[in-house]
Design a protein around this nucleic acid. Structure first.
Length: 321
RNA sequence: GGCGCCAUAGCCAAGUGGUAAGGCAGAGGUCUGCAAAACCUUUAUCCCCGGUCCGAGUCCGGGUGGCGCCU
């Protein structure tokens, strides 16, 4: 009898705000359905960022193969384009091997890059161009470069706010390098055409107040586990302190403390606050996915409690191996 | 007991007669190569009572609360 997975590109996606319990749920799904974990986390891709990114432990990684983790040098910038390209290879290989991809992570944009036909072709980032426009914006104001964009791509400009310098610059970069106009492209909200996978999109949630408590507890555990040493080790290695990887929550605050800009309790307070805000932003991102199935985990109880419910839904999609 | 100062949103805070700046926190949202990033939107009738005035957060009297000084 043919395994229904043979002819499909079905993948399970487990998303949710930070600290909700995604990894545990994903591991359980992998074990039950013969899956392998594909991380969708913009910070776990960096080698050396372990404690602060709540990276899976060696034990967990021995249990189930993990992909898209530790694939980038923390000194080098990484991007969604690269993520999508590499994930595509990984996922295709899994389909060829009849393994179920269990995509787990909280980086909305990274997940979207797998769900939609995002076209990153041609117009790669250009450091010189970015620097040029950054200088112009700095010297003459954000509206100066926004005006340029308005002239060259009115429709694209309309979608951006003049103060969103980073995105305005990217839009200009695309026009200048590839001649394309952001305004001409838009993708559908449904993930059918162009998706790399046929997703079963699951979003884990918790009551806000409970989630916030879990976030704070986890932050304290990260501190106890030696986050400070981890950050010191990274910077000692000649790591530029403005590198992207050190912009992550837990890293930038610890760096401020190490530099003497604030005391430790303040750094911890900021890590907690930034994590809470991040969780909030994640939820607004996930709420936009119309086809997502939301599973609310009661209070601060372990994820295990929603597993039966979760399995029932996945079972309907395809049988246990 | 006396004298003085203060009392504006969860916090800080501007405003000294003309119909409540700003910052922080919170909440909501945006998102096509830095996304754990970047950006946008949003929150009060001014401690209570009485008075003056066309009009009071702003002036006067009383009350309550806090701070400081004095005996």
């Amino acid at each position: 009898m043919a395994d229904p997975r043979h002819n499909t590109r079905t993948a399970v996606i487990i998303a949710g705000p930070t600290a909700v319990g995604k990894s545990e749920a994903a591991l359980a799904v992998c074990e039950r359905y013969g899956g392998e974990l594909v991380s969708a986390d913009s910070m776990q891709v960096y080698r050396g960022l372990n404690i602060g990114t709540a990276k899976p432990t060696d034990a967990e990684r021995a249990r189930i193969p993990h992909h898209m983790i530790d694939i980038a040098d923390p000194h080098e910038p990484f991007s969604v384009a690269e993520y999508r390209a590499r994930a595509e290879v990984v996922i295709d290989d899994m389909f060829a091997r009849k393994a179920l991809p269990v995509i787990c992570g909280g980086s909305g944009l990274y997940i979207n890059s797998l769900l939609y036909d995002m076209d990153f072709s041609g117009t790669a980032g250009d450091a010189d161009l970015r620097e040029k426009y950054t200088r112009l914006a700095h010297d003459f104001g954000n509206s100066y470069i926004y005006d340029i964009l308005q002239r060259r791509d009115p429709a694209g400009a309309e979608k951006l706010h003049a103060n969103d310098r980073k995105k305005v610059i990217r839009a200009l970069e695309r026009i200048e390098k590839g001649g394309e106009r952001a305004g001409l492209r838009d993708f559908e909200r449904s993930f059918t055409a162009g998706s790399l996978i046929d997703p079963l999109l699951i979003v884990l949630t918790r009551d806000r107040a409970d989630l916030y408590e879990l976030i704070e507890q986890r932050t304290d555990r990260m501190i106890d586990a030696g986050l400070e040493q981890e950050v010191r080790g990274l910077t000692c290695g000649g790591m530029p302190e403005d590198g992207i990887s050190l912009l992550g929550i837990g890293y930038k605050e610890m760096l401020a403390y190490i530099r003497g800009d604030c005391d430790l309790p303040e750094a911890i307070r900021l890590i907690k606050q930034n994590s809470r805000r991040y969780a909030k932003r994640q939820m607004t991102w996930f709420r936009r996915w119309e086809n997502a199935l939301f599973f609310e985990i009661a209070g601060k109880t372990p994820v295990q409690n929603v597993l039966p419910e979760l399995f029932a839904v996945i079972d309907a999609e395809f049988p246990v191996k």
